[in-house]
Nucleic acid binder design. Structure first.
Lengths: 135, 135, 135, 135
DNA sequence: GTGGTCTAGACCACC
DNA sequence: GTGGTCTAGACCACG
């Protein structure tokens, strides 16, 4: 489970965690019954406060995505089924569109945008070797 | 001047305006001396409270980006020079990286990401014909 | 809106607030559209931390009971309809049963229990004159 | 010895056991020298973890209420004297008051509360025939 | 070890 | 003024 926080985005940290966990389940990286990292170690990893992770997990629990047992940990709920490709595509399209609006304001041409995306994909794989996107 | 708000992003609306205006200046879409839309019509356009637009303009004035003359409107200050390509590239890279993290969690391959970006670029140009990214 | 906390009960303070607000709506004391006390004053009233009240209100919001607008306050949602007498009776029966189990362990006879209840009802009305139970 | 657990109350299970044992002693149901049920069967009865019962008994021993002899079981200590009526009355008053707060929020009149209490007393005696409250 | 609750206090965005 | 987020640190219950 790899989580990347962006402290400048304005999106609350706890929501960034919620969304990344949900995306990971949506795509089948996390499967029903599997355990999530426990609160304290994850908080240390991400260099954030324990309570912030706890809030994210609480939110996931009352969205019915995970189940949490005090003293045992948090687990993906059974009913979760990975989204179909089409749905995942729509989710990703949202994030892509946001970048495109930026590109427009910064006067990039489509070709330049594509080139930049290629670059950043490469950089991502170098930074996260074990977690690289599948080719 | 095209501004696109995202109410779900968590980033305060007034800051979204500030950043998009700055990006537009940075890229040369808005040039020194040009006027910004006045507060009321822009607020109506974007369907937000006038105070929110006013706060965005106040913030821009604070940062020395624009100048506001009571009764006349707001204007881009002279000193503003478009960012160099490298700076603009860094700004865009932030948005692109966010999308890539999503792509990772949703199990997309680099090839699929690039294809989706191509798609959305096309869709953007169709939706905003007058504002299309320059080829 | 009268809220009574019991710090010895073991039931988390924030849940005590949630339940009392829900009970108040269930019975029609609080009607749709009415505003709840705002977080800070209520916290001072109850001599608890602001965050604890905030957590109670957050819980009420994602149970769909209230709606909360930053900068404006919290309001009872429209869809809430007071429970029918029978439902309210069942809710109260739970609390009464807990007291009866206690009575059993403390070796009280039914007659003594009833007498004590009569006493405490009287005491409650004296302590909360403006809020006395309706006769 | 009848113990009734309420898993929704938020009061830790082990404390519910502690309090009910103490109440039983306070009222004379359990007398000095008598033995408590042993841990395993009680845990099975109540469908809870053995550790939880063990923790309750440890707490009781800590408070000087019982004595545990390895391999023989747990016994009520000699020094325990049943509470005087007045003390027991105060203990019960706490539970009754909680129910009254509920009744207030649910808009019950004192007469209705008393009627409901009478009802539930009757129901309790039917459900626990061997343990009925003494008349 | 696990998660849950609460406090205290800070900063922020919005009306 | 409103609510929202985050930190830091404490204590507790549970396995």
């Amino acid at each position: 489970m790899l989580i990347q926080l962006n402290f400048k985005s304005g999106l609350p940290v706890y929501l960034q965690i919620v969304e990344q966990v949900k995306a990971a389940i949506a795509s089948g990286i996390l499967r029903p019954g599997e355990s999530l990292p426990s609160i304290r170690p994850l908080a240390e990893d991400l260099r954030i406060n324990r309570n912030t992770v706890a809030k994210a997990y609480a939110e996931l629990e009352n969205q019915g995505v995970i189940e949490t047992a005090a003293g045992k940990g948090s687990f993906i709920k059974d009913s979760q089924t990975p989204y179909r490709k089409e749905v995942r595509r729509q989710l990703l399209a949202g994030a892509v569109d946001a970048a495109i609006v930026q590109a427009y304001h910064l006067q990039f041409t489509p070709a330049e945008v594509l080139e930049l995306v290629r670059d950043r994909l490469g950089a991502f794989e170098q930074k996260n070797p074990g977690h690289a996107l599948k080719n």
